[in-house]
């Protein structure tokens, strides 16, 4: 196809040239949109969850870890630019989530309900490990979710190390969120028409 001629004159960004198929390029905005919708639903129903990584999970499952990582990254950048500037920094967490989901999926860790649970715990751990330093740097360790922060305040009040307190705050929230999102993604993936799965697989 027309893949081998994108070099523009004076292209200063060749180092950015990760191979992206056109199918992936159109899948990523869709994934970001799904993140956005899922987040809106979670807020609308007043769920104690974010659900804002559902699209990233699905992109990783359909088109691999790179697509997932880029979806996660762009999701936080755009969300940060338009709605909440500080969420931009969590793009690092989203990249990691995309990669971990993609790798776990390719290794068969999304094949049945039991394995999904193990995957979800690994994803939550990854997310919490990366988010904790960010929480500490930007918010002195808080997450912005009231009951998680209440836990954080209690721990800090009892002179527990800020890193442990912040990690606990983040992980408690992450574990619930990532398990629920993993099961939703697992369930939805099985409902997707086979032709759709094939299209993204063939056009990577």
């Amino acid at each position: 196809m027309k893949e081998n001629g994108i070099e523009n004159k004076g292209n200063r960004f060749n180092m950015w040239k990760i191979h992206l198929s056109v199918a992936t390029v159109t899948l990523i905005p869709a994934a970001v949109g799904i993140n956005y919708v899922a987040k809106a639903f979670a807020e609308g129903l007043k769920l104690p969850l974010w659900l804002g990584s559902l699209g990233t999970y699905l992109a990783s499952m359909l088109a691999g870890p790179t697509a997932g990582a880029i979806s996660g990254f762009i999701n936080n950048i755009i969300y940060g630019l338009t709605l909440s500037p500080v969420s931009t920094v969590y793009s690092i967490t989203s990249i990691a989530i995309g990669i971990v989901v993609g790798v776990l999926f390719n290794r068969g860790w999304f094949s049945n309900a039991k394995r999904v649970f193990v995957s979800a715990i690994l994803i939550a751990l990854t997310s919490a490990i990366i988010s904790t330093p960010l929480n500490v740097i930007f918010w002195g360790g808080q997450t912005g979710i009231p009951w998680g922060d209440a836990l954080f305040a209690t721990m800090i009040g009892n002179h527990i190390n800020i890193w442990i307190a912040s990690f606990t705050d983040e992980f408690v929230l992450d574990i619930l969120d990532k398990v629920v999102v993993a099961y939703i993604a697992f369930f939805i993936y099985r409902q997707l028409p086979q032709r759709m799965i094939n299209y993204f697989k063939d056009n990577q």
Binding site: I6, N8, G10, N11, R12, F13, W16, K17, L20, V22, V25, T26, I28, P29, A30, V32, G33, Y36, I70, I74, N75, I78, T82
Partner: peptide
């Protein structure tokens, strides 16, 4: 000089929401 594919990717997110 950003490849058009990447420009498209970034901008279409703004349009898809």
């Amino acid at each position: 000089g950003l490849p058009y594919k990447l420009v498209y990717l970034l901008m279409s997110v703004c349009y898809i929401l």
